[in-house]
Design a protein around this nucleic acid. Structure first.
Ligand code: FES
Ligand code: FES
Lengths: 168, 168
DNA sequence: TAAAATAGTACTAAAAAGGTACTGTTTTAT
DNA sequence: ATAAAACAGTACCTTTTTAGTACTATTTTA
């Protein structure tokens, strides 16, 4: 299911909380833990990763805590994932990586992997954290069916990327 | 790194092979194994999954083998992933899933997860298998830098989805 | 009837994820 | 000074998932 790991999942929840309380001066790990029902060690660990990744600023001491390093509309979901889970790539085999595959010499699709990775990364890099805090979700009840994962759908595809149109 | 599992990775390689030899009558598991340097049991296992998922047709017996059930431009990379790895969702917690999270009652972003999942799924569903077989990759050497994963990039985002423009 | 192929199931070793514990450092308030 | 509350860093262990293999049965052709 190509699932986000829990850390990343929690990280998005946590940062969404920061985005929602962006007015508040500082939020401590304890604050977040209480608000999200995640264990304190867990929250603490994730906050440290986000700090290291440059998405949060921290202040030590008894009145310390964390805050977003940028505005919520200047942080993307894709960026969060990259900080907590590494590069946004579905395959480690791209044109730029050498020696990742043992079947490399006989593989003819290596140069094409980049397409898959790029398509996916672009999509998530464009989605801002602020989209998680809008009071009314983008997809109302009416629309919810359209946005669910539909397993049995047939997708008629006529797109041929990188090929010239027959009528050219 | 949100990586595809090996089965799915191999599956795309295998189907790309089918797409490239779409003229050939039937390809056996042995054929594929030889062509891809993947072990026969492995190939066999993946072919069965693809069959079950409706992407391949099979014929038994000594002259048997597999072939694509549709044209390569009518099969999407996203669909392949869904067959081999389950629903294309980054989180299992969506508006439609109930009881997936224990912190469900206190979670305010549940309705927003769908945005992340949809953005990602749409991107991959639009990418056809045929894009893996074009002789010259979409991204030439010149372009390769642009398509690599750039870790330190800053992304100025001003997109606010679902919010009205101030000047409206 | 033997050979070559698909069909289906089950098992195991290795790797990754998830979570917790522990120790140290910095700042504030008494 | 000193205690308390917060961040900082590291290491460990358990559980789950992944990856790969093995084995048996069925189908078709020569
Ligand atoms: S998949 Fe890596 S070389 Fe082909
Ligand atoms: S993440 Fe599942 S309920 Fe909030």
């Amino acid at each position: 299911m190509i699932q986000l790991n829990k850390h990343t999942d929690y990280g998005i929840v946590i940062l969404t909380h920061f985005a929602r309380y962006n007015d508040a001066p500082l939020l401590s790990a304890k604050n977040i833990s209480d608000a999200t029902s995640l264990s304190l060690p867990m929250v603490s660990k994730i906050l440290k990763q986000l700090l290291k990744g440059g998405l949060l600023k921290s202040y030590q001491g008894v009145k310390g805590g964390y805050q977003l390093s940028r505005n919520p509309d200047e942080i993307s979901i894709g960026e969060i994932i990259e900080v907590l889970d590494g590069p946004l790539a579905l395959t480690e085999c791209t044109a730029s990586t050498q020696g990742a595959c043992k079947t490399e010499h006989s593989c003819s699709i290596k140069p094409h992997w980049a397409a898959i990775n790029r398509v996916m990364r672009d999509a998530l890099i464009k989605l801002p954290l602020s989209s998680m805090t809008s009071p009314i979700p983008l997809w109302s009840e009416n629309d919810s069916k359209r946005n669910q994962i539909q397993e049995k759908t047939f997708y008629p595809l006529k797109i041929r990327i990188g090929e010239k149109n027959e009528h050219d």
